[in-house]
Design a protein around this nucleic acid. Structure first.
Length: 372
DNA sequence: GCCGTCACGGTTGAC
DNA sequence: TCGTCAACCGTGACG
């Protein structure tokens, strides 16, 4: 991975650390190419935006590229979710066993049926919806590969009547909330009952509707609760090191705001690294080896004593400074940033005390009001 | 200077 | 077990 060490002559990241954990962007922020920002930062971006902070200021304060801020905010506005989309994997399979079964039955009922007819019937019988109905070519492939040798038994005793039986139920069995389905493969996991099926994209908020609304973010502690956050994201392991902010308010290892963790997990597209981890260990997309400071890695975990990972900052109480974005450090990082950068940059949209308090109250994040 | 958009290089995970 | 593929990511540049 080429290190992009442009920028920031003042960036506080020792090269060895950057080399190990990520890259430094032009704003001095650390990121891992190809990996999403920590949810804490994503959340902060949304919070700040809600508070009226301009995206450009958010970008500078959090040291995230403005393109990223723009994207996250756009995503949030569109979906209500701050979470990244599912990374990797394949689209949910449409050729589920039930679909195959129905196709087989259609074929048995009418050996001369065309693939497009089957497709129509799948839709008509509500076996599939328009979002997960197999393509004609897929149906042809199924016919060829899976049903090809099917010698039509005396199917005509059934006439061409399509088995009406399962029509409606299949949608419940395979309610893909594609593409964000936790488990695209219907064979592995179906959406929890009640989870709306959206044919579209970004179903995160659909599948997990409320916790990401503005009101929830700004008002409901459940989501703002670091535990909720962490359980929703996956940076967990290290969020423990985020200080009291994270743990103090952890409600339960198995539930967040009344939402059963399992269902939350199900909404998170990332498989949990370990079920034995704290329930706040989210479906982290980050493998431990991939975690680096800014991604919640405890500063100490990668900031060796030898490194003065002292972030440009004044936030001495947090070795990670503005780098390891401890939730509790988010403000600190901003603060140190102000302290350090105010001199070389136009005044940012500083948070008023009121705003700051508002932020501090948000999900009980214990944002230090100290700018030092 | 701000902001939306896009290409790019990268990661991830199902197949 | 490994390669492929297609999803996603954030950055940086452009207009």
């Amino acid at each position: 991975m080429p290190k992009q060490l442009f920028c920031c002559l003042e960036h506080p990241f020792p090269y060895s650390i950057i080399q190990t954990y990520g890259e430094v962007n032009q704003l001095g922020g650390v990121f891992v190419n190809g990996r999403p920002l920590p949810n804490a930062i994503r959340l902060r971006i949304v919070e700040l935006a809600q508070l009226g902070i301009r995206p450009c200021d958010i970008s500078r304060q959090l040291r995230v590229s403005h393109g990223c801020v723009s994207k996250i905010l756009a995503r949030y506005n569109e979906t209500g979710s701050i979470f990244p989309g599912a990374i990797g994997g394949s689209k949910p399979r449409v050729t589920t066993p039930n679909v195959v079964k129905n196709i087989r039955e259609y074929k048995q009922g009418d050996p001369g049926i065309f693939a497009w007819e089957i497709r129509d019937r799948l839709l008509a019988d509500a076996v599939c919806d328009k979002y997960n109905v197999p393509s004609v070519s897929s149906i042809s492939r199924i016919l060829r590969n899976k049903i090809g040798n099917l010698s039509p038994p005396n199917q005509y005793e059934n006439g061409k009547q399509a088995p009406p039986q399962s029509s409606l139920s299949y949608n419940h069995i395979y309610p893909y909330s594609y593409p964000n389905a936790m488990s695209p493969s219907g064979t592995k996991m179906s959406n929890p009952p009640g989870v709306p099926v959206t044919g579209g994209h970004v179903s995160i908020s659909r599948g997990w509707p409320s916790p990401h609304t503005v009101s929830n973010i700004l008002g409901f502690r459940a989501f703002m609760d670091p535990s909720a956050i962490s359980s929703a994201e996956g940076y967990v392991p290290k969020m423990e090191d985020w200080g009291s902010v994270n743990r103090a308010t952890f409600p339960s290892a198995h539930g967040v705001n009344g939402i059963d963790k399992s269902s939350i997990d199900a909404d998170i597209k990332y498989p949990q690294p370990s079920s034995t981890l704290s329930s706040y260990v989210p479906a982290c997309a980050y493998s431990p080896s991939n975690q680096y400071g800014v991604y919640s890695g405890p500063a100490g975990s990668y900031v060796s004593p030898g490194h003065h990972w002292q972030a440009q900052g004044t936030s001495h109480s947090h070795p990670g400074g503005g780098v390891a974005m401890h939730p509790s450090d988010i403000h600190s990082s901003m603060a140190f940033k102000h302290a350090v950068r105010d001199g070389d940059r136009k005044p940012q949209s500083p948070l008023s005390k009121q705003q700051h308090e508002a932020l501090s109250n948000v999900h009980g994040l214990n944002l230090s009001t100290s700018s030092s």
